[in-house]
Design a protein around this nucleic acid. Sequence first.
RNA 1: GCCCCCAUCGUCUAGAGGCCUAGGACGCCACCCUUUCAAGGUGGAGAUCACGGGUUCGAAUCCCGUUGGGGGCACCA
Length: 496
Amino acid sequence: MSTSQPMRVRMAPSPTGPLHIGTARTSLYNYLAARHAGGTFVLRIEDTDLARSTPEYERDILDNLHWLGLSWDEGPQVAGGEDVGDHGPYRQSQRMDLYAAEAKRLLESGAAYRCWCTPEELEAVRREQEARKEAPRYNRRCLNLTDADVAAFEAEGRRAAIRFRVEPEVIRFDDLIRGPVEFDNALLGDFVIVRNDGMPLYHFTVVVDDEAMLITHVIRGEDHLSNTPKHIALMRALGYREPVFGHIPLILNPDRSKMSKRKAQTAMTAYREEGYLPEAMVNFLAFLGWSPGTEEEIFSLDELVERFDITKVHKGGAVFDRERLDHLNGVYIRSLSDEQLALRLRPWVPEAIGDEDLVRIVPLVKERLVKLGDVVDLIGFLWEPDEVVAGRYDAEQLHPRKGGPDEARRALEGAARLIEALDDADFSADLLEQRAREAADAAGMKAGDFFSPIRVAVTGRPVSPPLFASLELLGRDRALARIRIALDKLADAVPA
RNA sequence: GCCCCCAUCGUCUAGAGGCCUAGGACGCCACCCUUUCAAGGUGGAGAUCACGGGUUCGAAUCCCGUUGGGGGCACCA
């Protein structure tokens, strides 16, 4: 086919589950290829498997694709909007007439035929073939039935599926990523293209739709590489154009098998809910199987569009490495301004913490966040009731690293005294730190040992944002109350 | 079983015959900074480029074979 015509690519997810990480990356590569070439990115929903497809999953897929910033030029819209584009409808369930017409053409030309075999009969044949160490494929029992045979099946109430008659020929194509590939279709059995209930099947509908939607480049997962010769045979039988194919490597589980729900978190929504940033996810996914060929590694979606080259995509699969995702997410979080980060953090922080307060809190947590959701554990002490905070630790955890209950008590009493000596107006991080250091000296303790019991008393956790800024944010009275609770706990634990 | 694809540090990768004593990043270790944890800085360990044959003056890079891994062979997509 001519490469001079504008590129049209498509992503064709099936709404039988939430947006999968692998689907997201394939979408990304399609998007990048289209945008880089100034082409068109089409989204088509493959919902012919009525039993497994749901509107909720479709919604999840569209929604998360939007979240990642992958906009499509043609396809269905979220929120029940009408399809956009001149080649719709973009849901296969709405294109049944087309499939029926094309199936009829194949039937009439003899490229396809009806098959009345039952699943049980098919299974029996398959078992026999396996027993004889033969390739398991359809035995063409229904290829040359007499009218009487057909009448008998119909009388039984059987309904016919439609099978594509695969010609024994060698199919060659030049894969964008793998180069020349060839398959011998003589090894293939005649496969079903329309079920006996009239529903068309995947191998058939992709081919029909890619033609109807004028798709020029089919960019999809490597798991479809072996299916391509079927598609090409179908295209030829139907007199269609043959698009360019590009099969991208799979995303793998740590054991190097195809990434699956059982072994990894595959739903994009889950990552979104944990607080991964879409820009970090995009950056991460882009590099799973591609690199710009330099040592740069932080790229925005637009920069990726500029640099992306589909022919430079790798051939080997890539393991999904969560540690690396975490690292990238942290990089992106730290690159945000305080105002931007506060906005992103909003869904995780109670309304009781006002927007302005949240912006003031951000510098305390920014470099400690791996995921946005981590903010809850980091500054939860700001909105948790005193009892909840106190419930998070026991008396022993108040002891400084070097020291026991006595040191803990000395520090807490010192802290209580110095806080009492300050009024609200003076209750600032700087002044608190100055006084606390003096108090530590007076108590003959190292600063770190002196601060540690206070940290646990006030935040309920051994790890927290910087102590004095945390105290300032908490406020004089609440800080003091928590220190007194801690002192009580200490007293209860060590009866005099 | 048959067909197809793939193969550089644990992981993501740079590498298109001499620039490679194989570079970067994540993770790991150590040190520095430091009130905890992070972040940041410095340094380090980590790959006989799966193996074996060729081709070539020269191969991680080209060819063949082997091994290993993966994917596909549904009235799922």
